[in-house]
Amino acid sequence: MISAAALRAHAEGLAEALPPLLAEAEHLAQAVLLGEHGRRRAGLGDEFWQYRPTHSGDEARMIDWRRSARSDAHFVREKEWQAAQSVLLWVDDAASMGFSGASDHPPKVQRARVLALALAVLLTRGGERVGLLGSDLPPRRGQHQILRLTEALGRELSPSDYGVPATRGMPPHSRAVFLSDFLGDLAPIETALAEAADRGVKGALVQVLDPAEEAFPFDGRTIFESMGGSLRHETLKAGDLRGRYLARLAERKARLADLARVTGWHYSAHHTGEGAQGALLWIYRALERGR
Rank of each mutant, 00 (worst) to 15 (best):
I2D: 13
A6F: 05
H10E: 15
L14G: 14
A15V: 05
E16C: 01
L18H: 02
L18I: 14
L22K: 02
A23H: 11
E24G: 07
E26S: 02
L28N: 00
A29C: 08
V32C: 15
V32T: 08
L33T: 15
E36N: 12
R39W: 13
R41V: 15
R41F: 13
A42E: 12
G43H: 00
L44A: 09
D46A: 06
E47T: 13
E47V: 04
Q50P: 11
Y51P: 06
R52D: 11
R52K: 01
P53E: 05
P53N: 03
H55T: 08
E59I: 05
I63D: 10
D64I: 11
W65I: 04
A73I: 05
H74Y: 00
H74V: 01
H74T: 08
R77C: 15
K79Y: 06
A83L: 11
A83S: 06
A84D: 13
Q85I: 11
L88G: 05
L89M: 15
D92L: 15
A95S: 02
S96H: 04
F99G: 00
S100A: 11
S103A: 15
H105W: 00
P107R: 10
K108C: 02
R113C: 03
L115T: 00
A118G: 00
A120T: 09
T124K: 02
G126W: 04
E128P: 07
R129F: 01
R129A: 03
L132S: 12
L133W: 00
S135L: 15
D136S: 11
R141T: 05
Q145V: 12
I146K: 04
R148W: 05
A152V: 14
E156G: 00
L157E: 10
P159M: 11
S160Y: 13
P171I: 08
S174E: 09
R175Y: 11
S180M: 01
F182Q: 09
G184I: 09
E190H: 09
V206T: 01
V208I: 11
D210T: 03
P211A: 05
E213F: 11
F216G: 03
D219V: 00
R221Y: 00
I223Q: 14
E225P: 06
M227F: 10
M227K: 10
G228T: 01
G229A: 14
S230L: 12
A238T: 07
L241D: 05
R252K: 12
K253A: 00
R255K: 08
A260Y: 09
V262T: 12
T263K: 14
T263P: 09
Y267R: 03
A269Q: 14
G273K: 09
A276M: 13
Q277W: 04
Q277F: 08
G278C: 05
L281E: 09
A286I: 10
L287M: 10
L287H: 11
E288K: 02
